[in-house]
Structure formats: structure tokens, C-alpha cells
Amino acid sequence: MSSNNSKAYVSMKSVGHRYDPLPDAPMAVQNIDLDIHRHEFVAVVGPSGCGKSTLLRMVSGLLIPSHGEVSVFNLPVTEPRDDVGIVFQKANLLPWLTVQQNILFPLKHKYGNYSKKDEQRADELLKMVGLEQFSNKMPDQLSGGMQQRLGIARALLLNPDILLMDEPFSALDALTREQMGFELLKIWEAAPKTVLFITHSISEAVLLSDRILVMSERPGTVLDLIEVDIPRPRTSDTINEARFTQLTNLIRGHIYEPQA
């Protein structure tokens, strides 16, 4: 599924960013070159503060890089795009809206209203993430895992072609986290999207993605770009495969001894 489609969909060319405009201020990220193919699942791993989230914000158009260029389908990204859905770190739900209103929020917020058809689509999405019985509940009545499933469903509402996920499972406990990973794979396999998945869990990255971008500490640069050649569909047995252990060790080595 990975590189059989050679056309670059999301493309970063020597991208870098410094938040402080002073010329000798430190760079948050530096010299990132990455081409993501259509419907490819790319994970980004690296130590805390290496600029993973900065990278995601630059792809989303929320942040314009001070160096280099990000483009989607050869068009430079200068503002947030309609075909991008973002899943935030903590589910980022609005506590004053019901589950159904939360999932429909992107439409309500962008256009001011939504139609009966949109409501049907919302119901389908809720069903897909197993929350159809909770549509009238408030977000704080849901468990952490359910909240994040709702966060994912909301990001899918406008049927984006690109899904950006900023450490989406980091607030969850280990068991829920593993489950959510498999659920995400199911969703992605049913409706393929180009995914950029930020995480600091190495095994999560190996389990989910086609390729993994390993980043160094600040200023964040590319340490390695690793092809995950474990066949899909991946299940809980994947973790026991020799290749899985090999890859996680490889990445762990990169992160702990970057200068070696």
C-alpha cells in the first residue's frame, strides 16, 4: 500500500520553522524533507519537544513555516484547507454541546447550520465509532476512549482526504490506547485517507503506519525514514512478529543514540 503510488500528495521541501523571528533564534524544526503518498499512513516519532506538533501544524496550514514550503497536490499550503481533518491531543470536545452537536460542530461552525442529511452522516459516523447510543449525552459522561473516538469521528465529518493526528491517544490508558489503535486501522482501511500521525509511542507507530519519520531532539531534524514492511491487516499478533521487534529496536536506537 505504501509506495506503489509514486505521486507525492503532501510534500515538504526543506521545511523549517523558528517561532522567534530573530535571525539567531533557535529553530524548532529544520530541514524536513518528506513526501507522503496518497492514502499513505505516516507516523512521526521523536522525543518530547522535537517539533512534531509544529510539523503537523505546518501541514494543516495553521502555521506557515518560516523556511521551505509545504504543499498539497503541488499547491503551497497558505491557510487551513477544507480537505484536512485534525484530531487533537486531548479530544478537544466542546463540553457545552451534546455528542451529536459535537460531531456536527465543524459544519455548524463553518457554515452556521447543517441539513437533515448531515445529521444522517453524523449518525453513521457515530455508529462507526460505536457511539450511536450516546448521541444525546454530554462529553463528560463518556470515557476517555469514547471521547477520543468522538474526536476522530468529528475530524471525519467533512470527509477529509488528509487526516492529521496530534498524539491522539496520549491521554488514554495503555489498554484503551492499544484498542484505539486497531479501531483507527479499521476506520482507515474502510475509508482510506492520507494520515500523518504524531506519537511518542514507538510500538504504536510501527503497528499503525506504512512509514515512520524519526525526528531528533530540538531543533527537530529527520534522523531516519523507515519503511514498515509488515503486511496488513495488522492485528494484536503483529506485536509478536520478529520484524516488529526489529523495527522498534531500530527506532529506539535512533532516538537514544542520535549522534552515533
Partner: peptide, 15 residues
């Protein structure tokens, strides 16, 4: 993050 959600949707500021 809530503001970013709004920005990512390019919603008008009054909303």
C-alpha cells in the same frame, strides 16, 4: 486547541 479547531475550519471570527 479549541481556537485552532475554529481556525482549521476557517470559520468567521464572530462564530
Amino acid at each position: 486547541e479549541m481556537i485552532e479547531l475554529s481556525k482549521s475550519l476557517r470559520a468567521p471570527q464572530y462564530r
